[in-house]
């Protein structure tokens, strides 16, 4: 049997908001160590990799490894029934056909239960090699979301150029061009407000704005986002999820033919 209880149920709601527009369906792989999800969008341009460690849950039990294929639109409907301050418990039998979501109010006066049918999904797991990235940027997630939103008004693609002096995001389109430069922060009171660049060599890559905007839907999960870039390899955009895990997005670059 599988059971995972999360007092901060709002986290699971935010996680779903962060992936539901990229993926129509996904497999949640549950094991003793925790829950993992890896899935590509339909066009195979981006990939979501989610890890939730068992020790981050308030209660976690997984007797046998199981894979739960879920339609994320259906899961979103169910999560909308959960209040932001409610406790979420996910439950399933071994070899399940359904998963149950139980929502409890903080004082225990109200309990709602929703059972959702599971799907058999073909799994396209990708082996992602360990990479030493040429540039790793940590920056406020809200700033990244704003830059993606602002620049995507101008064009479909965004160029991210990272050097030791800073990062430049730029775009161009029919109405003109736009760019935003961020310098590395020299001193900050709060680490989450800093722009920090770890650079081995400068990198310039081009990405589709629509995916970056989709990744930015994870902003409520973390005040900080990290961008890892190397020449001619997919970008990694990572949001840590409190003490429980992370969501990482991989995005294939646009490359010259």
């Amino acid at each position: 049997m599988f059971e995972a209880r999360l007092v901060q149920g709002a986290l699971l709601k935010k996680i779903l908001e962060a992936i539901k527009d990229l993926l129509t369906e996904a497999s949640w792989d549950c094991a003793q160590g925790g829950i993992q999800l890896q899935a590509m969008d339909n066009s195979h341009v981006s990939l979501v990799s989610l890890t939730l460690r068992s020790d981050g849950f308030d209660k976690y039990r997984c007797d046998r490894n199981l894979t739960m294929g879920m339609n994320l639109a259906s899961m979103t409907k169910i999560m909308k029934c959960c209040g932001n301050d409610e406790i979420i418990t996910m439950k399933a039998q071994d070899e399940p056909d359904t998963v149950t979501f139980m929502f409890e109010s903080k004082n225990g006066d109200k309990i709602s239960e929703y059972e959702m049918k599971l799907m058999n999904l073909d799994q396209d797991h990708l082996g992602i090699p360990e990479t030493d990235y040429a540039c790793v940027i940590k920056m406020p997630s809200g700033e990244f979301a704003r830059i993606c939103r602002d620049l995507s008004q101008f064009g479909e693609s965004m160029v991210i150029a990272c050097s030791k002096n800073g990062i430049k995001f730029s775009t161009s389109g029919d109405i003109g061009t736009g760019n935003v430069k961020l310098a590395q922060t020299s001193s900050v009171d709060k680490e989450e407000e800093a722009v920090i660049i770890e650079m081995q060599e400068p990198v310039t890559l081009t990405f589709a704005c629509k995916y970056l905007n989709n990744f930015a839907k994870a902003t409520p999960l973390s005040p900080v986002v990290s961008l890892s870039l190397s020449p001619d390899v997919p970008l990694v955009v990572e949001y840590k999820i409190e003490d429980i895990g992370y969501v990482r997005y991989y995005l294939a670059p646009k490359i010259e033919d």
Partner: peptide, 14 residues
């Protein structure tokens, strides 16, 4: 114009 690559060009299917 650069073309959009896919992840399958970079990562192996397992």
């Amino acid at each position: 114009m650069p073309a959009q690559a896919t992840l399958l060009q970079f990562f192996k299917q397992s």
